[in-house]
Design a protein around this nucleic acid. Structure first.
Lengths: 222, 222
DNA sequence: TACTATACGGAACGATGGTTCCGTTTGTCA
DNA sequence: TGACAAACGGAACCATCGTTCCGTATAGTA
C-alpha cells in the first residue's frame, strides 16, 4: 500500500504479451528502459528513482510509465528476466554430477547472482513490502528446483537430513545482505563456505582468504 | 546526507548529560518519548515516522525535537540503551564457564535481541546509510567483547581457528533479517544452530523443531 | 495570585519520489 | 507529402517525512 499505485487500467497490457505492433521508436525505448533499469537496479536495488532510470535511458518518465504501469511492474519484469535462467540452471544441475557438489555449486551460484544484482537481494530481503515479488511464479519455481537439488543431495547422504528447504531459503536470504561493510564479495564467499559446511555431512572446507587475513589471531603456538 | 538535517545548534545538548533541571512535565514527556520510540522501533525499525512516535507519546513533534535534535539522535539513544547491557553480558560471559558454550550462548542471545528489537537489526544491516550508528562507540565495544569470547573459544579448541570476528559479524548481520516470511523466530533458531555448527569444531547439534516439521523428507530407510 | 522562563503543539516548510496529464513530436501509411 | 494515431517529454500533482517556527500554555517561584 505504501507506493500509492492506482488501479487504473492501461490501454495496453504493457508488461506481458510481446510487442503488439509497437512503433519502431517505442520498441527501441522499451529496450533502453530495461537496459537502464537493469544497470541501476543491479547496484542500487529497488531504491533508484524512476527519474534516474528515465534519464539514463534518455527518455521521459512518461515513457517509462507507458511501458510499465508501475515501478513495481518494472522491478518485477527485471526479476523475472534474472530468475528464469537460474531456474533452468538449477534444473539442469539436478540431473548431473555428484548430488552434494551440484547442490553446493548451485548455492554458490545463487548467492553470487544475488550479490551481482542487488534488486534480487532486495526482493528476497524485503518480502514484507507490498511489492510482494518474492513469493510468486518464477521464484516459486526456483524454490522448487533448489528443493529438488537439496533432496537429491540428502538422499545421497551428502546433506544432513534434518535440513529443510526453508532452512536453505532463510540462509540464502541472510547471505543476500549486500551492504559492503558487512558483506563484500570475499566475505560473502567465506560465509557461503561456512554455511555449506553446516549443511553438508562431515565437511570442513578451506575458507577462501580475505585480502590479507591469514594468521589466526594470536595463536598460543603450542 | 539524505535526511537533510541542518547543523544548527540546540540551546541545550539534549541527548546526553542528564536532566539539567528539566521542568517536571518536560521530564515526563522525555520518558514518554523514549518509551514510545522503543515500542515502535522494536517492531518497525528505524522506519517509523517521528509523527507516530509523537502521537503514541501523546506529545507534539516539536517536543520530540526539543529532546532529540534529530531522528538519528533518538535512534542512537535507543540503540545505546539496548547495546550497553549486551556489552556487559558479553564481558561477564567471557570470564565464566566453558569457552565454547559461552560463545554459542552469547551468539544466541544476541540474535534473539536483534529479533526482539528490529531497530538493532536495521542498524546492523543498513550500516551504509549516513546515520552511521553501526560502527561507533558502543557497537565497537560489543564487537570487541564478542571477539574476546571468540578467541577464547578458539584457544580452547572449540571454534575452528580459521574463523574470524568478521565472519561472525557478517553471519550475525545475515541472521538479523527480521522479515517473518523468511525468518520467524523458530526459523531463526534453526539457522543460528546451523551457523554455530559450522563454527564449532566437530559439532552437529539437534536442530530446534519448527511447528510440525518432523520427518525428514522421504528417507530411503536403509 | 501574578509573572516569566520553560516547554508545548502542530501548522508549515522543503525535499524526495511515484504517478498522471496534456500539449507537442514523430513514425507509419496512403 | 499530408494526415493521424501512436508515442513522447517533462511539468505538475500528490503523498510522505524530517525538521523548523512561532503563538500559546504552564510549572515554578515570589
Amino acid at each position: 500500500m505504501s507506493t500509492g499505485m492506482t488501479g487504473r487500467e492501461q490501454p495496453e497490457a504493457a508488461t506481458e504479451n510481446a510487442e503488439r505492433h509497437l512503433r519502431a521508436d517505442a520498441q527501441r525505448n522499451r529496450e533502453r528502459i530495461l537496459e537502464a533499469a537493469t544497470t541501476l537496479m543491479a547496484t542500487h536495488g529497488i531504491d533508484v528513482p524512476i527519474d534516474e532510470i528515465a534519464q539514463l535511458a534518455q527518455v521521459g518518465v512518461g515513457t517509462v510509465y507507458r511501458n510499465f504501469p508501475t515501478k513495481g511492474a518494472l522491478f518485477e519484469a527485471l526479476l523475472k528476466a534474472r530468475l528464469q535462467p537460474l531456474v533452468v540452471a538449477a534444473r539442469s544441475a539436478a540431473g548431473s554430477g555428484d548430488p552434494g557438489d551440484a547442490f553446493v555449486t548451485f548455492v554458490r551460484k545463487l548467492t553470487d547472482e544475488f550479490a551481482d544484482f542487488k534488486a534480487l537481494a532486495d526482493a528476497m530481503a524485503a518480502a514484507g513490502i507490498d511489492l510482494s515479488i518474492a513469493k510468486h511464479e518464477i521464484s516459486g519455481e526456483l524454490i522448487a528446483a533448489v528443493s529438488e537439488l537439496l533432496e537429491r543431495a540428502q538422499r545421497a547422504g551428502r546433506i544432513r537430513p534434518d535440513v529443510t528447504i526453508s532452512d536453505v531459503s532463510a540462509m540464502m536470504a541472510g547471505l543476500s545482505h549486500t551492504d559492503p561493510s558487512f558483506m563484500d564479495p570475499p566475505q560473502r564467499q567465506r560465509c557461503v563456505a561456512l554455511v555449506c559446511d553446516s549443511l553438508l555431512v562431515g565437511a570442513r572446507s578451506v575458507l577462501p582468504r580475505k585480502k590479507f587475513a591469514a594468521a589466526p589471531p594470536a595463536p598460543s603456538r603450542s
